[in-house]
């Protein structure tokens, strides 16, 4: 059952991913991308990372995709549809994609033992992944978490400073 869910989600992700590239209308591409991102969120849920899954939907589907759609609305969809789909650099792209697939096939055949990785530091037993993330943020990673708020403030001030239409 678990395998069935995994393979259907993974298959759907690949399918949506291909449709993103193939679709002629950029709006359609964006909607297919939402599908791919939702499927990935499903994969996270299946691995027991419900926090990452939730954030995936909130940030990517909710935030980033809406931004994409805004940008697409600004370009002319009619002309974009007529642009040739195949990039003139397709030979280079094919070569790179080929190299990447050889690497991936090699790694899959070798199994998980290719790289010796360390086990992460022990996580205190709490109920589920979201609590663990929250607990880590407010204890162990308290300082970076606080500085991240300064970082967001800087981004906000910067966006306002650069985008304000008229400065008095």
């Amino acid at each position: 059952m678990e395998q069935l869910i995994f393979y259907s989600l993974a298959g759907a992700t690949v399918l949506f991913g291909m449709l993103v590239v193939i679709a002629r209308n950029p709006v359609h591409s964006a909607i297919f991308l939402i599908g791919a991102l939702m499927c990935i969120a499903g994969l996270y849920l299946q691995m027991g990372a419900e926090f990452v899954g939730g954030v995936q939907i909130l940030v990517y589907v909710g935030g980033v995709m809406v931004l994409f759609l805004f940008v697409i609305m600004l370009v002319n969809v009619r002309t974009a549809e007529r642009v040739r789909q195949l990039s003139p650099e397709w030979k280079t792209a094919l070569l790179l994609a080929g190299a990447l697939s050889v690497e991936l096939v090699y790694l899959v055949l070798k199994g998980p033992g290719v790289f010796a990785t360390a086990a992460p530091e022990a996580i205190p037993a709490l109920q589920g992944n979201t609590q663990n993330v929250g607990a880590a943020l407010y204890t162990k990673y308290l300082l970076p978490f606080e500085i991240a708020s300064v970082l967001l403030l800087v981004a906000m001030i910067g966006a306002v400073a650069l985008a304000r239409s008229r400065m008095d």
Partner: peptide
């Protein structure tokens, strides 16, 4: 003395200087 904090510090510098 931690990679995470170092990274956040670096990002704070980077975003400010882009603007």
């Amino acid at each position: 003395v931690d990679l995470i904090l170092m990274f956040i510090g670096l990002e704070t510098v980077a975003i400010s200087t882009y603007v």
